[in-house]
Amino acid sequence: MSTKTKLRAAAVGGTADDVETAFYEALQRGDIEALMACWADDDEVFCVHPGGPRLVGTGAIRAAFEQMFANGAIHARPARVRKVESLASAVHNVLERVEVLTAQGPHHAFVLATNVYHKTAQGWHLVAHHASPGSAHEPDDDNDARQTLH
């Protein structure tokens, strides 16, 4: 059994939360196989990185993450997760705390991301990841409630 097959098999019995944990752990290790095992094997999955184009399909998503991992792992940790869940889908909106290593030492930035999971016969898998630039400073909880759209 291939590593990819084993990773997919391990995710079958899990929850959307388990897939999200595996996704962020794979980012932190720079492990492309573990990261791709989180994604549904579907031509219509999509991913948008901050300031980037929409990537459609696992091939395009894999290529983008391989390019990112060429520069090292991505040290992103989810926080302040907001969830909307049903029997066969889950939407998680997270504040990603990203550690960036510079010559002056580590700095943190924040990215707002939405992860969408679907439950299929093969288990829970990621079908969409959309990330937008956040701020250089972690917003406080009070700001979350006061922000309005347009």
Rank of each mutant, 00 (worst) to 15 (best):
E44A: 03
I61R: 00
V91F: 12
A136L: 10
G123H: 12
H108W: 07
C47L: 09
V127Y: 12
H92K: 00
A136R: 06
M36F: 13
L35A: 11
E96R: 05
T5L: 13
R54K: 13
R77Q: 12
N143Y: 00
Q67N: 14
I61T: 05
D43P: 11
H92W: 05
Q28V: 03
A63Q: 08
S135G: 09
L87R: 09
H125E: 04
T120Y: 15
N115A: 10
G105E: 11
V127N: 03
E33K: 02
K119S: 01
M1C: 01
A128T: 07
L101M: 09
A10S: 11
E25T: 02
K83E: 14
H137N: 08
D141S: 03
M68N: 07
H137F: 04
F69Q: 02
A16R: 01
P53R: 15
A76M: 11
E138I: 00
A26G: 05
A136H: 02
G52W: 15
D42H: 12
A88L: 14
H130S: 08
F23G: 03
H49C: 05
F69H: 05
H150S: 07
G134C: 06
A60F: 15
A109G: 15
A22C: 08
H130K: 02
L149E: 04
G72A: 07
T5D: 14
T120W: 11
G57A: 10
W124D: 05
A103F: 06
D31I: 00
P106F: 05
F23H: 11
L112T: 07
I74Y: 04
H130A: 10
R29V: 02
E20P: 01
E20Q: 04
T3Q: 14
C47R: 08
S135H: 06
E33H: 01
N93D: 15
L126M: 11
S89C: 12
A34Y: 14
S86P: 05
